[in-house]
Nucleic acid binder design. Structure first.
Lengths: 142, 142
DNA sequence: GTAACTGCAAAATATTTGCATCCTT
DNA sequence: AAGGATGCAAATATTTTGCAGTTAC
């Protein structure tokens, strides 16, 4: 009944100690199909007829907990989620790349090839994590 | 009935074309008194007995619209607001500084002296705005 | 078989809107 | 006096929780 799924779906779920269920396969499939970040609302729009809103919340939470996706805070106060790269361990995300929000198409995605520049803070601050979100116009919208 | 207010309150409101009301004076006073960012909930906790929750929403929106404060998105999905510096025109924020979130005291504040490092994006991207949020441990919590 | 996942209902929160009244300019 | 700000009520929207039934391993 469903289109053929992305080959990585199974291995990714297993690699992150997530049990393989229809909902998780579908939602992970969305992330793999679309190389951009997704908000809860986006996902609900796509699979909301087949899966409960609550299941989507819990699925996203499980994905974050197990290090499969990471969250991206944006100015519009709608949390987005995007697939992590291999170096994201469970509960320990290394978001060394920056995030780009296109004002035109409203897509959000990771620029994996762009590394977050280092910042020099005044004496006395300990840096734990750096989050960088750039907004503008993406390549396909120019 | 209220403690003596910060001397800048009046001039700041007027400079941003905001009419001077009790609520606005109080809420702006909170921002001036505390050199950190405030979330809606923080403000409600402080003045919620005197001003309606709706008024706080509208006040924050007005402050953002008129360029008096800017919003800071964080990983916990709770939007914070912080005073803008002089170069924030109405509806046109220049957030050239970075934001720091302390995991210890949970305060969020602008590091005005730290300028956002420039990023080099792949060809084809237009940069409009850069938002950088660093989390870690702040000076007073070390 | 057991633990984990899901759907449904409902509670708890958060945000927005309309409108009558009051305050600022 | 006129326009804008506020409070209250209520409509929406969002997120969380509990529990019983189902599914993965």
């Amino acid at each position: 009944m469903s289109a053929k799924q992305h080959p990585e779906v199974l291995s990714l779920l297993k690699a992150h100690a997530l049990s393989v269920t229809d909902g998780r396969k579908e939602i992970l499939g969305l992330f793999l199909a679309r190389k951009g970040a997704l908000a809860h609302a986006d996902i609900e729009k796509k699979v909301g007829d087949r899966f409960d809103r609550v299941t989507i919340y819990r699925t996203l939470q499980a994905f974050v907990d197990k290090g499969l996706v990471h969250s991206i805070p944006t100015k519009d106060n709608a949390m987005r989620y995007a697939l992590c790269k291999d170096d994201c361990a469970s509960g320990h995300h290394h978001d060394h790349h920056i995030h780009f929000v296109c004002k035109q198409c409203d897509n959000t995605f990771c620029l994996d090839e762009v590394v977050t520049p280092s910042v020099k803070l005044p004496r006395g601050y300990t840096i734990n994590q750096v989050e960088m979100v750039v907004s503008g116009v993406c390549r396909s919208c120019q």
